[in-house]
């Protein structure tokens, strides 16, 4: 599974992109976040306040309850500020 981080989620985790192989019991975005938080203090800090974290699965906005599978591209980022 490809996981991407943007803006301050990238600076806090220290990576822009990583390939991960979560265990089979990681079924949803929320499960994935809980699993990613254990990768280190930077990851735990990035996901400390989920009210300011948005997620996209395969480049479409998704809910934390959305299912994820090994071939997915999952991106985490703060609310957007373009325009």
């Amino acid at each position: 599974m490809k996981v991407l981080y943007f803006a301050w989620l990238r600076t806090r985790t220290g990576v822009g992109e990583e390939t991960v192989s979560p265990p089979a019991d990681v079924r949803t975005v929320a499960d994935l976040i809980e699993w990613l938080k254990r990768r280190g203090p930077g990851h735990a800090e990035a996901f400390a306040d989920l009210a300011v974290v948005r997620v996209a699965v395969n480049q479409d906005y998704a809910a934390f309850s959305e299912r994820v599978s090994p071939d997915d591209e999952v991106a985490f980022f703060p609310p957007v500020t373009g325009g």
């Binding site: 943007f6 803006a7 996209a56 906005y61 991106a75 980022f77 703060p78 957007v80 500020t81 373009g82 325009g83």
Partner: peptide, 14 residues
């Protein structure tokens, strides 16, 4: 378009 772009297009300003 500009209103929707500002809340949906994945850009971040630093």
């Amino acid at each position: 378009l500009i209103d929707w772009l500002k809340t949906r297009a994945p850009f971040w300003k630093r």
